[in-house]
Design a protein around this nucleic acid. Structure first.
Lengths: 133, 133
DNA sequence: ATGTAAAAGATTATAAAAATCCTTTTGACC
DNA sequence: GGTCAAAAGGATTTTTATAATCTTTTACAT
């Protein structure tokens, strides 16, 4: 759940892109130089963004990436989940895993609540908030 | 930040101890058998608890661990931090590390807020809540 | 003194994250 | 159509963190 380095890089990268004139196609090399991020690593991250439909990729010469939708429509949670996968504070809240004491566990209830708060907040904030303030 | 396996085990372990009659001294082997936790691993965890003053250790024959203070006085955050160290959602909120954009970073502000909410919640819930409900 | 149980430190094993490399595919432009 | 630039995809390596185990030392009860 903790924001990993990939997550960090991911935010820097997509924020950079979102600050460009709309529809501008930006090469990864440009982003990676400006934000000081290993290019190949950034490539992987942007592949995730493409798959989640946050950015659009343009292959070939003069290719690169452009935003696929307005920054107002992209939440911090979207970005984070695109790079790091589903958000959960404890393993037992991960869909994939599970625990037999699931329904009675008092600790789980606390984590569940905490996680709900967290994801709500991350859903309210958008990429637009990140680049303007 | 995510609850690790050590964290999981730690909660199971201290909850077991807290459910015992007050001041009862319990051997690790008993806890580890009942909660199905590798004993030596649990030992490390309880060493942390002892250092943080959550439990009291008793060495030698008939030794073991007992609670050092009432379950009402121990928060979920105390337990978690004792085992896993300080709680932070992103590296840049970790005291140790730091970031030059610290003061202006809009992303950091969001994480800061999220983290405050989280730690508040974890401070309100106590070990007593965990074992009664 | 003897046996028992935790403390402490060292070591190993496993898993996740970070980073790099290589080959393939795609598209723009001449 | 051929060439070049850039992303896609897959494989591999490196690094770091977590999990688990082993050994030796220390404390204490009997």
């Amino acid at each position: 759940m903790e924001l990993t380095k990939a997550g960090d890089y991911g935010f820097l990268g997509i924020m950079y892109l979102a600050r460009q004139p709309e529809k501008r196609v930006v090469r990864l090399s440009e982003i990676s130089e400006n934000e000081d991020i290993p290019e190949k690593f950034l490539a992987k991250i942007f592949q995730s963004y493409t798959r989640s439909g946050l950015v659009k990729s343009h292959r070939g010469a003069r290719g690169g990436f452009s935003m696929a939708k307005p920054a107002e429509k992209i939440t911090v949670k979207d970005i984070m989940e695109s790079v790091q996968g589903p958000i959960y504070l404890t393993r037992c809240l991960n869909e994939a895993e599970s625990c037999e004491r699931k329904d009675t566990c008092s600790l789980r209830k606390i984590w569940m609540k905490a996680q709900d708060h967290l994801t709500n907040l991350l859903e309210k904030k958008t990429l637009a908030d990140l680049i303007t303030s």
